[in-house]
């Protein structure tokens, strides 16, 4: 037994005890670095995505409210882009932008992008201007029916998944998915394509109607049956039936 005795309010720790404490602190530091590295390295890598938070851009084009709110916009080089539209926070198309189906509109918003999926957060009501009936040649985006299909995947809120939150899947994100779906953010079905890459199918009701999805199913695995429609550059599933597919009840 060492004769040294530790008294915290003395200015100096006894020498042998101080040396032993330094050794323990060093060992603890190595342990902390090791465990935190391990903890960080074991995380599932987040998928890429962009949310230009706080950055406002000007957009214009024809606004469609159904089956999902989107802006059909033609760039200077003539290429067509379809932007899904959502509101600020965990909300779908904001009230100030509703009632303008088929009209040519101009507004400022923040871009959200994941691969080919593009979305605009409309967060500046004062910039929203309806300029009259749509002037783009096609009245509405061209559609191609692919097949009737049943798919199983995670029900995601597209705003988070396309770039606002990374990661935006799983139970850790479930409450956010519930709030977003409840607030009107377009729902999506996250599935894997034959190459194993994640793909999100936008979900709507049959014949282009809006889909009423139970928000509490957010971030859970669901089985979706319906008609797969290729909406120009965007896959969409017109839902006939939905059910939980993760072994749980409602």
């Amino acid at each position: 037994m060492s004769d040294e005795f530790y008294i915290g309010y003395h200015n100096k720790c006894p020498p042998t005890l101080a040396q032993r404490t330094r050794r323990r602190v060093t060992q603890l530091a190595v342990l902390v670095v090791g465990l935190m590295s391990l903890f960080a390295a074991l995380q599932t890598p987040a998928e890429p995505g962009v949310f230009e938070y706080g950055v406002g851009r000007s957009f214009e084009g024809v606004l469609y409210e159904r089956p999902l709110p989107l802006l059909r916009s033609v760039s200077k080089d003539g290429s067509m882009t379809h932007f899904l539209l959502v509101g600020a926070g965990k909300h779908g198309l904001p009230a100030f932008a509703r009632g303008h189906d088929g009209q040519y509109v101009r507004f400022r918003g923040s871009l959200i992008q994941k691969d080919a999926n593009v979305m605009i957060e409309l967060n500046d009501p004062n910039s929203f201007t309806a300029l009259g009936p749509g002037t783009i040649p096609e009245e509405s985006p061209a559609q191609a029916v692919i097949q009737d299909i049943t798919l199983t995947g995670e029900l995601v809120d597209t705003k988070c998944y396309f770039g606002v939150m990374r990661p935006a899947t799983g139970k850790g994100h479930r409450a956010c998915a519930v709030r977003c779906l409840s607030g009107g953010v377009p729902p999506g079905l996250l599935v894997r394509n034959p190459e194993g890459n994640p793909v999100v199918l936008l979900l709507t009701g049959p014949r282009g109607q809006s889909l009423q999805v139970d928000p509490e199913w957010g971030a859970r695995r669901i089985r979706a049956s319906g008609r797969l429609v290729w909406n120009e550059d965007t896959p969409r599933l017109e839902i006939v039936s939905l059910s939980l597919a993760d072994g749980g009840g409602e």
Binding site: A29, A40, Q43, E47, M165
Partner: peptide, 29 residues
């Protein structure tokens, strides 16, 4: 001071390894 050092060490290690391993993760995450 040692406690503060451990905080920087722990959080710094986590942030550094996370940014290398999962560069797309948001700052909030």
């Amino acid at each position: 001071l040692t406690l503060l050092g451990f905080l920087f060490l722990g959080l710094g290690t986590f942030f550094a390894v996370s940014l290398l391993h999962s560069p797309n993760a948001t700052a909030e995450t």
